[in-house]
């Protein structure tokens, strides 16, 4: 049997006669490729047919968006309000897609941040239907209508869906989010190698895209403005747990996060972990840093 048979394929129907045919005719090595191409073509046709069907089903369907509007510089927008938009649905449409459509087609003054549309730049975290989500990563099909889109809570609104991120960035910078190792390994290349295990340990913490969803969801960060917040503590974790930095640097990092408004403020409500669009186990990281800090202090008693 040829290799493609091992791959799980939903429709095997068109290729069956073919695979029987192949050994009989004793074809040249080109035949597996031809078969693959043929199978792909038929799969593509099937997918396109499915897509067209879905499209037809969605034809005429719209999504009802209720979008928060506020602009201190425009007289009739100084009083915050919700605007309704009815955006034609498309297959695979995200909240961000709908907002872009609304802005391009209905109201060019609708303001929101967005850039990569691939959940990497972290610009488009909104408060969608009562929870912090990334606009570009949230499918409209998952949401109840009307879809309420608001700016992130607990940050001041500059205009429409744009919030002031300055405080969030300040907290991120306060944990010194950069490599501080000075002694480089011997040799020409002076590579700082990391063990696979250690890479695995900090893997999730490196995924932060600075969208601010966690900070916005955090009840404590809302009340205590000095609290570092989940994102900054996670950033500290990413470096404190990185073995390429010396022990003294780790201690320095722990001293930053063990201040009164550091890790101890976390009440393990798991709100941050639940809203993180990159699935970073934030609570777990904060808890581990608490234990590290306690251990460090017990050592010197």
């Amino acid at each position: 049997m040829s290799t493609q048979e091992q791959k799980p394929e939903p429709d095997t129907e068109p290729e069956e006669p073919e695979s029987q045919e192949a050994p009989v005719e004793q074809r040249a090595p080109a035949s597996p490729q031809q078969r693959r191409m043929q199978r792909k073509a038929s799969n593509l046709a099937e997918r396109e047919r499915q897509a067209a069907e879905d499209e037809a089903k969605l034809e005429g369907d719209t999504v009802h968006l209720k979008v928060f509007r506020f602009d201190p510089e425009v007289a009739n927008k100084q009083e915050p309000r919700f605007d309704d938009f009815h955006v034609p649905l498309e297959r695979g449409m995200t909240v961000l897609d709908a907002l872009i459509y609304a802005r391009d087609e209905y109201d060019s003054s609708l303001t929101f941040r967005h850039s990569c549309r691939q959940a990497i730049c972290g610009s488009d975290a909104f408060f969608v239907n009562g929870s912090q989500r990334l606009g570009c990563k949230t499918q409209l099909s998952e949401l109840d209508q009307p879809v309420r889109v608001e700016p992130l809570p607990h940050q001041e609104v500059v205009k429409d869906l744009v919030v002031d991120m300055e405080h969030f960035y300040d907290q991120m910078h306060s944990v010194e989010p950069y490599m501080q190792q000075e002694d480089l390994p011997e040799g020409d290349l002076a590579e700082m190698r990391q063990s696979r295990e250690n890479r695995e340990k900090i893997k999730m913490s490196t995924r932060c895209i600075w969208c601010g969803a966690c900070m916005s969801s955090c009840n404590i960060a809302a009340g205590d403005n000095q609290y570092l917040g989940p994102a900054a503590i996670n950033k500290a974790y990413r470096f404190a747990m990185d073995e390429r930095e010396d022990e003294e640097i780790k201690e320095h990092r722990l001293r930053i996060i063990e201040q009164e408004h550091g890790v101890w403020r976390c009440q393990t409500q798991f709100s941050c972990t639940e809203v993180c669009p990159k699935d970073i186990p934030l609570t777990e990281h904060i808890q581990e840093l608490k234990r590290e800090a306690v251990k460090k202090n017990l050592k010197f008693w």
């Binding site: 201690e251 722990l254 001293r255 063990e258 201040q259 009164e260 550091g262 101890w264 608490k290 800090a293 306690v294 460090k296 202090n297 010197f300 008693w301």
Partner: peptide, 15 residues
Amino acid sequence: ERYSSFTPGGTAWLL
């Protein structure tokens, strides 16, 4: 310096 790294926040948390 190490002794000063012992913070009230951490002690209260542990206690």
